[in-house]
Design a protein around this nucleic acid. Structure first.
Lengths: 255, 255
DNA sequence: AACGATTATTTGTATGACAATTGATTTTTA
DNA sequence: TAAAAATCAATTGTCATACAAATAATCGTT
């Protein structure tokens, strides 16, 4: 019997993901997203993963089933587990997107994400303005209030995310919900980006307030426009981070 | 030996429903999507599922890990597996969306899907027009040719889907890729809808051709406009199906 | 009533055995 | 020789069992 040695991969003792199969799924998923195993290639077989990480085949199989569920892999008898083509990956899965962010350039991600946001969010705001139910305004205004009370830029991220998710929910179109995590990741990454230079961007609060007001007034066109301004502001923040020489003090144009 | 068919033909490639854990995942997933187990509620424990389906606990666990990966469930020791809130479900996962479609009214799905398409596709067409690489036009024109050569409405679905996926790919923004399955499902359902009344809608071919031409010419505004017309046409088809009294012969406006 | 120890229940992990599938190889046969 | 059939081998798929770990529920003591 081969002496089992302790797992050599990162053990996040803090995070509650102490379960072996979860750590395995994470480790394998990161390898796939970072390109260690390219689409179309075969992964090591279950026994090999087990030996690599000092885990039983049972745990390995459960990890693989998880990744299976995320569209990263397909397993076939006798042949093994093969990495699926990228367009079958569930990129909008929380874990997959997180692994993806970790493996790709942050700026590139932010730019892709902004591109998607600019496609979607103006239309979302318009839908929200015309289709929201009365109760859904509360969440919007609560988020806005949360942003106002934030004392640091870090504290503002959470209510900011909530604001945009509330907008999404107010469309009453559940097919839109999956795009929420792009917003979450984009804002979280954006905070990482800006917080080094820009302690607390007060300018975004009135911009959000404009959106909320337009939605509350059920004015679709105005809501769309207000969101577009908001996104342009975000673009400016990203662009400012682009040149590290500059102090990144752009876009202080309170409404 | 019982008479075995030679089967020298292309064998019908039966897909995985013979694996126990896959069937289990499907069965449980359908129950969740159809509301048998509501978000927040507890599922039967692993032993009970096993008894219900005559499967081992191992297989049940693998099925649950699959659903876990799709965001439908979280499992905790001693408490069991709990259904996640809907906004954490990976609705853009192929399986989840399929289960969802099966459990919801088709018209409602089509309308939600069209709403999303109208948000995204005009912008996608514009991006495709401005950002495509030369090689990506080939896929677009190939799909268009496939539509032309289709002899029935059924044969047209596949190239139609390919056309829109090619557009998506031409944006060179991988965060948009997950959206593709909404197109797939929407067009497949739409075909089911229209094929009963409308044998072959020739009208859509020139509309698609307009889009392809605008993209090839790198004319973003024109591409956006052409797609909007295409989507309005689709809307009309759906609306026509809405009144079963009418013969559904709308929208025959060849360009 | 508060609090700590105990218990019971459920998921998590490990192990070993065997079945099923199928790519690769070898043998048979036309 | 070439095609078809039989065989082999590697890998995932399934099962049964045992035990570990976590924790909700219970009980007992103060």
């Amino acid at each position: 019997m081969p002496s089992r040695k302790p797992a050599s991969f990162t053990k996040p003792k803090k995070l509650p993901n102490h379960k072996v199969h979860t750590r395995l799924a994470q480790a394998i998923g990161e390898r796939i997203l970072s390109g260690v195993y390219l689409p179309g290639s075969l992964l090591p077989n279950e026994a090999e993963w087990g030996a690599m990480f000092g885990a039983s085949r049972t745990a390995v199989r459960e990890a693989i089933k998880t990744l299976n569920g995320k569209g990263l892999l397909v397993s076939r008898t006798k042949v093994g587990s093969r990495v699926e083509p990228r367009d079958r990956w569930n990129l909008l899965d929380r874990d997959v997107l997180a692994w993806h962010c970790a493996a790709m350039d942050r700026r590139a991600f932010l730019q892709s994400a902004q591109e998607v946001r600019k496609l979607l969010e103006p239309g979302i705001a318009e839908l929200a303005a015309t289709k929201h139910s009365p109760g859904q305004l509360a969440r919007l205004t609560a988020a806005l209030e949360g942003m106002r009370q934030a004392k640091t830029a870090g504290e503002m991220v959470e209510p900011d995310v909530q604001f945009h998710l509330a907008l999404l929910a107010a469309t009453n179109n559940e097919l839109l919900a999956p795009f929420g995590i792009i917003i979450e990741q984009a804002l979280a990454n954006l905070f990482d980006y800006t917080s080094r230079h820009n302690p607390k961007p007060l300018s975004v609060i009135p911009l959000h307030a404009n959106v909320a007001a337009a939605v509350a007034a059920s004015d679709g066109a105005k809501a769309r426009h207000a969101v577009m301004i908001l996104l342009e502001d975000t673009d400016a923040i990203i662009a400012a981070g682009q040149q590290p020489g500059r102090p990144a003090k752009m876009a202080l144009k309170p409404a």
